[in-house]
Design a protein around this nucleic acid. Structure first.
Lengths: 242, 242
DNA sequence: TACGATTATATGTCTAGACATATAAGTCAA
DNA sequence: TTGACTTATATGTCTAGACATATAATCGTA
């Protein structure tokens, strides 16, 4: 990923078309709502086949830079929205990728019938069973994050017998259960006694919280809360403009 | 955006191919590093033309699910990475979109030669001039976020004369300056006196911090720190699996 | 054995068509 | 004016080819 791609190598035609349009959008020459030329007009302008301009426009649409409507044309979408791609890996993979030593510790694992609080957290109505897991991840023997997780056994029956004493539940789930939708909520809290103890920080120290809900189709799979020491851990998202 | 797309409408062929491969990757049937079938093999399996499977594979490559290498084939990339699309709009637009009353207040604006701290924050070496802005956004007259921003005048000379007493600098920049790259860092801190005062929260209360750096090509445009009350504001990112 | 040249091959891009499909716009009747 | 029907059109997908290009694998040579 290079910052400036001003090499002298001639890009392919569809990339040039895409870049041309992107530029006009980013400079504001074509403001939001503006109708960009029809495919057949671009075909004429660039002297190429329709498939070539179609590929350029399709990629712009995929990047949410333009919106394409049959019969109407293609329109510039609000370009002022920054779309950040925040990659949040499996914590084990994340720590290993950082080149640090990964440590895992299961704090508790309970199999129980859902309580009202569980059902609310998972967004399910019917009674059922869950696995409630609490565990800690560390990097180079320093606490990295604590995890509180519920797994809905009606969606993931195998989780009842999975061994989470060695493998973190997040990694296990990623390898065993496909997900189709997820939602992250990021917030900040201050550490209470339990968190401070688990993360080896002071009571009242800031913590970054990530709540993640994962579904497969409309079925809830898991709800997890990750707590990171807020002053040391940082979520970094780097992304390209558009 | 529907949670369950189990309608009976038959998807197009390239989407089916893409979904098939995606599924095998997500279930772990094809683990990272696994070579997925060659285009000509998929052509035979699905009985379609090469362009059709090429489109499916190209989209998977764009989504970073697979890596394609000439002569070698296409390989599964670390599939356990969840890719969250976190849309962070211009704060004014964000509050308006929430259907709440937007309020803006310029706290301070200074034009000055860069200090060493400024240069470090902007990541520039050479001395120059910056505009340093501090302001507050509110929703329905409740403090929503405070913003501390530096704008590099060597990249954005117009910012020297822009009137930030009415228009927030973020909105002004988005409409006047195209950006090509940005980086977000999300962390948590506890409020000190100044923050507590500006956000109308208690000293020691948690705050969510977003540091955003924006570049055009390799030129730094702006560095901004946004502080949100951590227990009330939440960053929500919802995204599709894959 | 090591290294340089050659070759085979999978992907990357492109074409000139085709038919499908959603829908904006126009038409006509109530 | 309103609603229902028809039509025109831009995009969506697909085909059966083509040549370009990067590179893994092979072969030949020092």
């Amino acid at each position: 990923m290079s910052l400036a791609t001003d090499a002298a190598d001639k890009p392919t035609l569809y990339k040039r078309i895409r870049a041309d349009i992107e530029k006009r959008i980013l400079t504001g020459e074509w403001p939001p709502g503006h109708r960009i030329p029809f495919e057949h007009e671009l075909v004429a302008r660039y002297g190429c086949s329709r498939m070539t301009v179609n590929k350029a426009l399709s990629e712009l649409a995929q990047a949410d830079l333009i919106e394409r409507r049959r019969r109407a044309g293609s329109f510039v979408r609000r370009p002022q929205h920054q779309s950040a791609v925040l990659k949040i890996a499996d914590i084990r993979a994340e720590i290993i990728a950082l080149g640090r030593g990964y440590g895992y510790e299961l704090i508790s694992r309970k199999l129980r019938a859902t309580t009202a609080a569980d059902r609310e957290r998972l967004g399910v109505k019917k009674a059922g069973k869950v696995v409630a897991i609490s565990c800690r991840h560390s990097a180079d023997n320093v606490p990295f994050a604590v995890e509180d997780r519920l797994i809905d056994l009606s969606s993931v029956p195998d989780a009842a017998t999975a061994d989470f004493s060695r493998e973190p539940p997040g990694s296990w789930l990623l390898h065993h259960v496909p997900w189709t939708e997820a939602e992250h909520t990021i917030s900040a809290i201050v550490a209470d006694d339990r968190m401070a103890d688990a993360l080896d920080i002071a009571v009242g120290a800031p913590c970054l919280v990530i709540d993640r809900y994962t579904w497969r189709s409309a079925r809830t799979i898991t709800a997890v809360r990750l707590l990171y020491p807020g002053d040391s851990h940082r979520l970094v998202a780097r992304f390209k403009g558009g």
